[in-house]
Amino acid sequence: MNLTLHVWRQVDAGAPGRLVRYEARDVSPDMSFLEMLDVVNEGLIEKGEDPIAFDHDCREGICGSCGVMINGSAHGPMAGTATCQLHMRSFKDGDKIVIEPWRARAFPVLRDLIVDRSPLDRIIQAGGFVSIATGNAPDAHTILVPKQDAESAMDAAQCIGCGACVAACPNASAMLFTAAKVSHLGLLPQGQPERDRRALGMVTQMDLEGFGGCTNYGECTTACPKEISLETIARMNRDFRVATFRARPESAGAGSS
């Protein structure tokens, strides 16, 4: 099939960008979306034009590197599917496809479809962990975790950190990303000692990074390739509220972390 692409081209973070039209010819329905871009790029290089830059790595939907807005929806039309796992059979001959980078103040465009998602790492740094040094752990069986809790934690822990939630949210909010980690650890016994600190720290960092707020639209969960539930956001809201009211000033004698 033949397609018309309108792709966002931008040389670097400082330069203005624009949508440029390309024709994708003889696209096979068995190609993945990224393979279609590969073929377009091969053609561009042969013509002496700069290929379209896009992030990608594992191409099996787990590393979270890839992700673009495809016709106005994050990762394209297929539910629970990252861009690399979207196949061209989801499109039909003659389709016009608009391809844009994730857009958010916190995610500046680095080039074409590549954005800087380092704010997500900094949110994790603000508390998305259990403070345990290597070798400190007790035997694994001393910590019992009810199966249901382990499953719910896993539901949240599946987040691949792609940023589609931010991209899809009309407010460019990172609530679903942050909440997934707060939920994952908050549901497990290992996460309890730092539960309050984690919620406070991660939400504060999320705000500092310049993401928008949550207005409970639900766009994030629909765009999420792992279909992380809105329940995680509710859980984070609760943890944050409870933590605020439970927190005591750190006593003078307490050491730093």
């Binding site: 345990i132 290597t134 752990a137 007790p138 694994a140 822990a157 994952h184 497990l188 290992q190 996460g191």
Partner: peptide
Amino acid sequence: QCVAQGVPFAR
């Protein structure tokens, strides 16, 4: 180590 970190292994 992984369990202590909160890796949600199957139970």
